[in-house]
């Protein structure tokens, strides 16, 4: 299948990109930049802080550029390309200043850097080079911990049973849906249970949840139902958007069941209970 073919005409008939080979991971770097993401920034900051702690525990120095804001995804998925591009350009400039690997505690924002920035800047060859370099050095948190840091987690928590929700971006864009599982497997006291229709979307989809609240609401109801029916005592996820969606729905339904960001969960497990309460 690898017959080389190149037709540079913009109106040339397109083929699907070659299948991605398994990602090649670099040696652990001495420092990284954490891109917090706007949802974590405002709604789950302790998860971002726990991500920093987990990275530091691996001997990695963490930079958090104060100029960062949002990756641009909301505008991009809403069809506002120019606005998305302006925001993307800003983040690119900020992240390029240090040129450090970028760790993101959310699959969809990492996917934005890796897969959608190249589409946004396809018409600017010079910027595209920088964008491709950024894509190359962007890692989802679980991926970075597992594959780059080769983290070893010693569980100090009480036995628990949890369900794992994997975001669609992690699953289908980042190919990181198995990484969180592997991390959880390292925790002796934690049993991960499957839930019904596990690979199905939770219904968030960014602005989809407000443009199509009826359909989105039906999806999140089904998702929360299967999570609660799984026998787990709580849910963990490595994606801020899904977490906001699922927890918001559970709260609206007046359920006690809740989800938590994986970073906070891991940090708590390896430190024993109540480790997360800082700030």
């Amino acid at each position: 299948m690898s017959q080389l073919f190149y037709d540079a005409a913009p109106n040339a008939t397109r083929v699907s990109p070659e299948r991605e080979a398994d990602r090649h991971y670099p040696e652990k770097s001495e420092a990284v930049t954490l891109f917090g993401t706007c949802v974590v920034d405002l709604f789950f900051p302790e998860a971002g802080l726990d991500a920093i702690r987990l990275l530091e525990r691996e001997g990695v120095r963490v930079h958090f550029p104060q100029e960062q804001s949002c990756c641009g995804q909301p505008a991009w998925t809403s069809g506002y390309r120019d606005e998305a591009k302006a925001v993307a350009r800003k983040q690119l400039d900020i992240l390029d200043r240090s040129g450090l690997p970028v760790v993101v505690p959310s699959g969809s924002c990492a996917g934005m850097f890796r897969h959608h920035y190249p589409a946004l800047f396809a018409d600017e060859p010079d910027t595209l080079k920088r964008v491709e370099a950024l894509a190359e050095r962007t890692f989802e948190l679980t991926e970075f911990l597992l594959k780059v840091c080769k983290v070893q987690l010693a569980d100090r928590g009480a036995p628990s049973r949890i369900a794992l929700h994997t975001s669609c971006s992690a699953r289908r864009e980042m190919n990181t849906h198995l990484h969180a599982r592997e991390l959880l497997q390292q925790l002796e006291g934690v049993e991960r249970v499957d839930h019904d229709h596990e690979s199905e979307c939770c219904g968030f989809g960014g602005t989809f949840s407000v443009r199509m609240p009826e359909v989105s609401g039906a999806m999140v109801k089904d998702k929360t139902r299967s999570l609660m029916d799984s026998g787990a005592v709580e849910m963990v996820t490595a994606d801020g958007g899904c977490l906001m969606n699922i927890n918001g729905s559970l709260e609206k339904q007046k359920q006690n069941f809740r989800g938590r960001h994986l970073a906070s969960f891991l940090w708590e497990r390896i430190n024993g209970a109540s480790a997360g309460e800082v700030a």
């Binding site: 954490l34 917090g36 974590v40 920034d41 405002l42 709604f43 789950f44 900051p45 302790e46 971002g48 802080l49 920093i52 963490v62 958090f64 104060q66 949840s209 407000v210 443009r211 609240p213 989105s216 609401g217 999140v220 109801k221 906001m244 969606n245 918001g248 729905s249 709260e251 609206k252 800082v278 700030a279």
Partner: peptide, 23 residues
């Protein structure tokens, strides 16, 4: 429409920008 399916979102007490800077 968000609150048709969700509780109202309440921001955290401090942003990650603040927490990270302090930490």
């Amino acid at each position: 429409p968000w609150t048709e399916n969700h509780s109202a979102p309440v921001p955290a007490r401090r942003s990650l920008h603040d927490l990270a800077a302090r930490h």
